[in-house]
């Protein structure tokens, strides 16, 4: 097995569930991700010049040092030292619906791992990372920092999250948006089980403060497929409401409603220049790390 294949396997949530400790999970994921990542993407985003390195196929030609090429007839890429002025706020939804799981990993667990991995990656890139944990209100707030000890602090917070209640996503988003003044990267990790228009309005609030937003929409495969057959008494995990019905009978309508729900988010996010990524709890994490890095490279 190659190292690349091995690292890819380690990014699988099923494998990660066997690891103990968030730090270990985050380190395993990020290091594995980085080792397999194309070199050009994993670089600093600072404007301070750090030196040259030899061009390899696939490098961005924007960073090719044409002067050196003119003088030496050899291709070199300019490498810059990273800056730590990008602040990232991880907004983590811990409402009770996030605890739903049709497999070994719940949406909440997946969201925590994702937050941990992103934190690890960002801090390893010297970016400052903060954390806001919320359900109907803000339950925990960690201000952004970029030190290694801060990473441990973040991970410790993520490991010991309180139990959530119902969701009131839009109001919380408005609340957070009004408290973050400086231009930042906002990463929302949630199942977004609220009215899409309201949620989008909250996100747009961030856009008004010139924040960049990435939305990781956490979903369980069962929430998409709804492959239940037989008679069930469905129990709403947040409200406790009950509904009797046959899985098979409800499936088509459910899938249609869900597709509409997702489509509305996708469409609204695109309309408001918000990055939107659907995160199904069996999706390997490299996809999201790449998503982050891609946006980071494009924006900052």
């Amino acid at each position: 097995m190659s190292s690349g294949q091995q690292s890819s396997r380690l990014l699988d949530p099923k494998v990660l569930s066997k690891l103990s400790g968030l730090y270990l999970v985050a380190k395993t994921v990020v290091e594995g991700f980085i080792s397999g990542l194309h070199r050009s993407l994993y670089r600093g985003f600072s404007v301070e010049f750090a030196g040259h390195r030899e061009y390899v196929a696939g490098d961005d030609l924007r960073y090719l040092d044409w002067k050196v090429f003119g003088r030496t007839d050899r291709t070199y890429i300019r490498v810059f030292r990273e800056e730590t002025n990008v602040k990232t706020h991880l907004l983590l939804d811990i409402s009770r619906s996030m605890e739903y799981s049709s497999g070994p990993v719940s949406k909440k667990q997946y969201a925590i791992w994702l937050a941990a991995c992103l934190s690890y990656l960002m801090i390893s890139q010297k970016d400052a990372v903060g954390l806001v944990v919320f359900d109907t209100d803000i339950r925990r707030l960690v201000k952004p920092a970029s030190t290694t000890s801060h990473l441990h602090h973040l991970l410790s917070n993520l490991e010991h999250l309180p139990g959530g209640t119902t969701t009131s996503l839009s109001s919380v988003l408005h609340l957070i948006a009004s408290n973050i003044k400086r231009r930042s990267l906002i990463i929302l990790i949630s199942d977004l089980l609220d009215e899409p228009e309201e949620v989008i309005r909250g996100l747009v609030h961030f856009r008004h403060h010139h924040h960049e937003i990435i939305v990781f929409h956490i979903l369980d495969p069962a929430e998409l497929e709804f492959s239940f057959t037989g008679q069930f008494q469905f129990l709403d995990m947040e409200t406790g409401e009950r509904l009797d019905g046959d899985g098979l009978a409800l499936r088509a309508g459910y899938q249609k409603a869900m597709a509409n729900f997702l489509h509305r988010y996708q469409k609204q996010c695109a309309a408001n220049n918000i990055s939107y990524a659907r995160a199904i709890t069996r999706t390997p994490f490299d996809y999201f790390l790449y998503q982050y890095l891609s946006l980071r490279a494009r924006t900052f």
Binding site: S97, Y100, D236, K256
Partner: peptide, 18 residues
């Protein structure tokens, strides 16, 4: 009883295809 994340889509389903 079968705990599920939300009933909002099920209610819609019940109203239409149900």
């Amino acid at each position: 009883p079968f705990p599920f994340s939300t009933l909002r889509f099920l209610k819609i389903s019940q109203l239409t295809t149900g």
